[in-house]
Design a protein around this nucleic acid. Structure first.
Lengths: 215, 215
DNA sequence: TGCACACTTCGTTTACCATCAAACTGTGCC
DNA sequence: GGCACAGTTTGATGGTAAACGAAGTGTGCA
């Protein structure tokens, strides 16, 4: 949860529960404790509770801890379960190997452009996404960040976040190119999905075909 | 155990068991885990196993954690041994009461200026430090942070970190105004040092004269 | 007014981890 | 060789904390 908050955005308790892959009641207990110990602060707005890191000090410690864990573990730090590494959701968009590959292809094909803090969707991209049933102009009107590079936890590279990323996930789910696993953030790529992703995006998930059987 | 090792001395597993108030077998289990995770290293000498922190990174994280906990814990935090409180090194610069006092004097005398994230050395400061044998321009070329306020673990106030801080410690050691204690991060102020620090910086370590005898 | 939603509180269960005693390994010393 | 010491390994035990479901509170929207 704390690392999720490192991105700077304030997250609701439900979102944090998803991130941590625990139930809402469990998340609530944890967040209460974190609040009591002054590691997070909470902003109540209507029926939402927005949690964020308490201050720069906390962020600093987390940063130094992660550096230590990274430098230290040498081998064993990337102990992310395989099913989560391959394809999963990050909030409401696609993360994991699949997310990163898609992101890179979108950039290479010039569907999106820019970088750093935010992306734009090109004319070419608008047309191509339209063909997938995504209305980019409508997406643009959502009251949230439009498109941005979101650092991938397991891959340490970027995938596509924001309203466009969410719309893309929606579209892939709609067409059943990917499906959600129950009670997990894990995504499965279907047989059709694997073919289409390869045809349309040039994305090949080598290990995917094998693993999908395992669930 | 880790905080006990923060003093710099290598401790045996029995000593660490005493510190943690657990049985030797429990301590052994914990130390094994810490070793596996590269938080401590062990040096086997005869039938003794000397444990010490794995590196500066670990010490840094512990330091920052304790600072954070200090803000948090409210009551019970300042149980720092006196010899460490007075004067010690923090990586390669001066910390403890002496470090904080020096820092405050440097600011007040306008040898350094700025604050927050980093300091500059003023013209006046460049001249004054030059008189101590410190070439500020050369220091500036070091590939590291130049000068910054470093939060002091025991004092909860800032001392001077970075290349300038390191150069200052070097200069004081060179002139034997302070000396290193064996196997510790503790620093001792010599008789000459006490006089000079008072004359040149207006720094008075009231308790120092008394304590220095104890070593 | 009523329902959906966000989130919390409560009570229970379960799994895990810390701890210890006892037995074992290895070193040093007489 | 034998004893004392330093430390580890093993197996058993108990306490605790993490997790969940169910029920409750409060907010927003139709």
């Amino acid at each position: 949860m704390l690392y999720a908050l490192m991105e700077g955005r304030a997250l609701t308790s439900t979102e944090l529960a998803l991130v941590a892959a625990v139930g809402p009641s469990t998340a609530s207990a944890h967040l209460n404790r974190l609040k009591r110990e002054r590691l997070v602060r909470v902003l109540i707005q209507g029926r939402h509770r927005y949690y964020s890191l308490y201050g720069a000090g906390v962020a600093g410690v987390l940063e130094s801890l992660s550096v230590l864990a990274g430098r230290v573990g040498s081998g064993l730090q990337t102990r992310t379960p395989d099913h989560l590494r391959l394809a999963r959701t990050c909030y409401d968009h696609i993360a994991g190997t699949l997310g990163v590959l898609l992101h890179d292809r979108l950039l290479a094909a010039e569907w999106i452009s820019g970088g750093d803090a935010s992306y734009e969707v090109t004319v070419k991209g608008t047309r191509a996404l339209g063909a997938l049933g995504i209305d980019v102009e409508e997406t643009r009107r959502a009251r949230r960040r439009f498109a941005f590079p979101c650092l991938d936890w397991s891959e340490r590279r970027c995938h596509l976040g924001g309203a466009v990323g969410a719309a893309l996930l929606e579209a892939l789910l709609q067409r059943r190119w990917v499906t959600r696993e129950r009670r997990e953030r894990t995504l499965s790529v279907t047989t059709v999905g694997a073919r289409e992703l390869r045809a349309r995006f040039g994305v090949v998930l080598g290990e995917e075909a094998r693993r999908r059987g395992l669930g």
